[in-house]
Design a protein around this nucleic acid. Sequence first.
DNA 1: TATTAGCAGTCGATTAATTAGAGTGCTAAA
DNA 2: TTTAGCACTCTAATTAATCGACTGCTAATA
Lengths: 337, 337
Amino acid sequence: MLDDRKKKILASVVEDYITSAEPVGSKTIADKYNLEYSSATIRNEMKILEESGYLEQPHVSSGRIPSSKGYRYYVDNLMKSKKLSMLDINYINNSITGYGDTEDLFEQVADTVSKLLNRPTILTMKNEDVLESIKILKISDKILLVILMSENGTIKDVIAKLTDTIPDDSVRDLSKLLNTNLQGTPIEKLYNVLSTIISKELKVYSSVLEKICEGIRYEISGENKLVSSNNLKSILDLPEFADIEKAKNFLNMLSTKNAVDTVIEEISSKNLGIVIGSENQEIMLKDYSIISLNLTNDEGYIGKISVVSPKRIDYSKTVSTLNYINEKVKNIFSKDK
Amino acid sequence: MLDDRKKKILASVVEDYITSAEPVGSKTIADKYNLEYSSATIRNEMKILEESGYLEQPHVSSGRIPSSKGYRYYVDNLMKSKKLSMLDINYINNSITGYGDTEDLFEQVADTVSKLLNRPTILTMKNEDVLESIKILKISDKILLVILMSENGTIKDVIAKLTDTIPDDSVRDLSKLLNTNLQGTPIEKLYNVLSTIISKELKVYSSVLEKICEGIRYEISGENKLVSSNNLKSILDLPEFADIEKAKNFLNMLSTKNAVDTVIEEISSKNLGIVIGSENQEIMLKDYSIISLNLTNDEGYIGKISVVSPKRIDYSKTVSTLNYINEKVKNIFSKDK
DNA sequence: TATTAGCAGTCGATTAATTAGAGTGCTAAA
DNA sequence: TTTAGCACTCTAATTAATCGACTGCTAATA
């Protein structure tokens, strides 16, 4: 669609703008990137690129910045994949240790990505996760620790503070009962299923079970989402946030649940999903991009990492980082086998 | 020290400034607060208050704002205690449920305070907490869940992924061994104690123990501190952060570990500690105040809530809120008995 | 003697006017 | 088809002018 020269110019504009955050002029392109054309030629081409929607001009006597369409073309056709620096690789290897359960791992991943890319990162866990088994541990006469293990490898524990003491064999009894009744239940439905069971069948232990149920509701808040934004101060250092209103707008958008979530859900089908600026349905997101990668292990999809950023971000580095992390996660899972 | 009229004027200036965030002029005081003096008289008094360091003037033709000394005098001598609104009381009662272990409770407290006062809140747990007992649960052939219970009532679990399978009686053995060796160990020394024990004595299980040890290090990061800043967007709405540099400075200060921590540690002796602006040793904190209250239960000190804010904050409401929360926490602990 | 009315003076904040400079679009020549 | 060159545009930075809130001081008043 675009001829060779236009491609080169568009790529240069995008790459320059990604690092400088300033509108890019024809002279800059001619000087800094050794294209063989004069600034006048580039000027003409840029005008055409603008007319066809790849570039835009903040005002008539300024340089150009990429439009959402421009970034899109760049990402789809022009972007070269980047190797991660040794520094970054080391950082990843040191900070994603694989300690703990799946949720711990996800937390490490979110923190690492957020730190490396200096952007808020959202981690969504596969939400078809299902209960594998329950263990109950009597901590004291009146306190039970209920441990939920999911197929995914997540371990949650729920504390139930009882009103009466409970004998040891009741605990064993209860444990069997819960396992037979709840095995295979989707984690996020646990509360509902258990509470209907209580009201219908398990009258014997209803007082204890209610405490457990309450605990489950508290512990499993329904949203299997994890947001990490390491070092907010340095995120606000991005030039797009020089205006505090922009910064507040960004923070606001992040804390508006639905905004980002719907986008992330919609791109779930593809492995790598990049949604740029105005491509977002949600108007709140029109200046931001979301770059999202499915995490997989041997058994398939386990969750998703999503980076949220102003449109201006090093897409190539972001993708490389996410891919590397996915490999890392795969390794950890297969090592645990 | 200050005569009655000066006290009234100082109180009015502080209270007006707390709500308006604008330097307060003599006319404002004369009109809004029905003191019986003319603006000229107030002007004269304000000048004296300034000369003795209670007020300061951003520039010569502006109103006055309280200095750190002024706030201090207000807090110590002039401030009237405020009743919490029913709205606030309800909010507290609904959001501090007492579910879970002590750490969950602290988290609820931090979130609630942060939300009510719209300020970042730091919760420090008593760090003389000591291990009460350990339980080990075999989750699968190669995964152990090690549960640490402290005297304080905190429950932590550590996952140990083993390299080899472990028989059931070894688990029991191990459990006894750990209990006899570690009971009474301060939580934050657990890692060190365990690792020296491994190297010296418990050679038999050393491979398993190392995994556990690793887990403990990860889980108990040494800092028993919890920071909550609900809804950052609305904190940035404070007029002191109209300038983004100020906002970044604040965020930076918060993430600089030592800055706030040393202050909080130093005020540990008293029950209620208020450190205002320049009273802080640390220069980073010169524009901020820290209001900190010791939480107690029947057995005494269990931790501390600290609110971090620009100097301008409703000290009275803050203190009332913290006191109410302390009562609430006491109730929860005594109910659990 | 203590208080107050009144007024000149200060200084930040706002608005308007000026200038500088980066970058464009277009024309005409190569 | 490309490019040199120039007139033109518009932002950003600078300077100047004005406004207004508030003070400090003086002199009159209670």
